[in-house]
Design a protein around this nucleic acid. Structure first.
Lengths: 106, 106
DNA sequence: TTCATATAACACCTTTTGGTTACACAAATT
DNA sequence: AATTTGTGTAACCAAAAGGTGTTATATGAA
């Protein structure tokens, strides 16, 4: 898996395991081993997920002795936040339209 | 593709074509044909994307004669918004920590 | 040095994705 | 009635995702 920058933020957060991994890293930096222990999938699978998150720049890593420690890098999530924000006007409009409809009936 | 409820919101918005389709539907309801004309992929591919969006409840459809009209249903995006919001504290914290670091050096 | 541990690097398999073409069918038009 | 138009769907394909397991390498500790 993973050769070019094939994974953007949206694809990275599409997987529930990866979303959970981000939650864990939000609390505390963790090594691959520590992360793998929190999940029921294999360590190899976790490493692959970490690669995807890394490509999307949602995590960074550093070496500490023989362990590789991952940290949350939440900045890229702003892209998602902004994309979703665009649609807020529409769900607000729906509510507004509904409100108008109700008021017209009165 | 698509038999059970295999597609949640996160997976639905993972694809750039689907994100663009949502933008288009935000402006105006559209038939399958109209949507397909906006993209360079086949109508069949568009229909599949619409199924994914539909499973994720991001769009709804109604029949008008022989045309099938799709509408944006943005409510489910709130889930994403809230999920992302959780991480806002961390990117704020990063800034705060950086600020403290700078101030300590002074 | 020796041994255990943490991670990396492969090879391999299965399922899912995203796309295609071809055809069937229903609704409008003429 | 015949034709055009919009949609549904089946069959197929290539590539990628997600998982397994095995082996290799590098680091730390005894």
């Amino acid at each position: 898996m993973s050769s070019a920058a094939r994974h953007d933020v949206y694809q990275a957060i599409a997987d529930p395991t990866r979303r959970q991994m981000l939650k864990q890293l939000a609390e505390k930096d963790a090594s691959i081993k520590e992360i793998a222990e929190s999940f029921s999938v294999s360590r190899t699978a976790i490493v692959k997920h970490l690669h995807v998150l890394s490509e999307a720049k949602l995590v960074s890593d550093r070496k500490e002795g023989r362990a590789k420690i991952y940290s949350l890098q939440p900045a890229q999530l702003m892209e998602v936040k902004e994309w979703v924000s665009f649609f807020e006007q529409y769900w607000d409009n729906k509510l507004a339209n509904l409100k108008n409809l109700v008021e017209d009936k009165e």
